[in-house]
């Protein structure tokens, strides 16, 4: 590492045997330990200032009665305990679980099916793959505007279609009826999430060596047996990882519901994110909003740790 050679004899008494960083600041960039810390600094500072610090501040806010523009006082766990008796919060919690646990399995199964289809050779392969990715990659707020109109009480093309076919005599209140509304936002969520599963599982499928399939075929395995014994073991890992990611994202979702219903009608589609926004921003009760958001934390932490443990075992 030392490119300077030994110091001249006259100086040897003055400088310590180990070159000093004060004398040679450049050495900080050559030593592994110091360079490692320095290279982590830009990322570390941003993550600490705009993620770590707000997280701690959020915990503090949730323990106060802060309003927007009014610094609050410490009230202990009152926000958290009040929420437990808040019927809208209880409903929000139920909605969030229905929303997440009702969509993730559907996304996973449909995504797996689509991945298998996309793994076959077909005409226009790249165009088809790029096309199915669209729901996942375009801004959700904008595609949700498309769904907003598809679900419109008056202009919905499906109301028109079903009335033309004689399936129904009146327009369908996709977002106006509490039960229909939660189903409608879930369908839009499934629509957005399928490509993520499909592409992730497709990447896993492509990692299956074709020799394995050929060897199994020579041994007389049927296509179904080959799928079960060759493909499934390889894609179980990716599918599980994608599922855990999806659960975390769906629990913490916001924009799709904000655009489609803002939590309505009658709070039937409120999830943690939208209710935290309503209380923290619209109703200006930051302390309560922060507490609602923090109620997500144990759930997210549980799945994050699960993901971490699984990934560490895999690697």
């Amino acid at each position: 590492m030392s490119r300077s050679g030994p110091p001249p004899p006259a100086m040897q008494a003055a400088v310590p045997a180990r070159p000093s960083f004060l004398a040679r600041p450049g050495l900080l960039l050559e030593r592994e330990t110091s360079l490692g810390v320095i290279l982590m600094l830009p990322a570390g500072i941003i993550l600490l200032a705009f993620m770590g610090y707000p997280f701690v501040l959020g915990i503090w806010l949730s323990l106060t009665d802060s309003m927007i523009g009014v610094p609050g006082t410490f009230i202990g766990l009152k926000n958290f305990s009040d929420l437990l008796t808040d019927s809208i919060f209880v409903q929000t919690t139920g909605n969030t679980f229905v929303y997440a646990l009702g969509t993730v399995p559907v996304k996973a199964v449909l995504g797996l099916l689509l991945a298998i289809l996309l793994n076959a050779r077909m005409p226009f392969q790249n165009i088809v793959r790029a096309a199915v990715l669209l729901p996942w990659i375009v801004p959700t707020a904008l595609s949700s505007l498309g769904w907003l109109m598809i679900y419109d009480g008056v202009l919905s093309p499906f109301s028109w279609l079903f009335m033309t076919w004689g399936w129904t005599s009146q327009k369908i209140p996709f977002l106006g009826d509490p039960t229909l509304a939660i189903i409608s936002v879930m369908v839009a969520n499934i629509w957005r999430g399928i490509p993520f599963f499909a592409v992730t599982i497709l990447a896993g499928l492509q990692a299956v060596p074709s020799e394995l399939h050929e060897a199994a075929a020579i041994d007389g395995a049927s296509p179904w047996q080959r799928f079960l014994n060759v493909t499934v073991p390889v894609i179980t890992g990716v599918t599980l990882i994608a599922t855990l990611f999806s659960i975390i994202w769906t629990f913490a979702d916001f924009q799709l519901i904000y655009v489609l219903t803002r939590g309505g009608p009658a709070n039937s589609t409120h999830i943690f994110g939208t209710y935290a926004y309503q209380m923290g921003m619209s109703a200006a009760q930051i302390g309560v909003g922060a507490a609602i958001a923090l109620y997500m934390f144990p759930i997210l932490a549980f799945f994050a740790i699960l993901l971490l443990v699984y990934l560490r075992r895999e690697v």
Partner: peptide
């Protein structure tokens, strides 16, 4: 730590972050 940061959703932080 960096991996876990990837799993922190904006909905968890936006209210305190607005204060910052």
């Amino acid at each position: 730590g960096i991996f876990l940061a990837y799993l922190v959703p904006p909905t968890l932080l936006f209210l305190p972050l607005a204060q910052v």
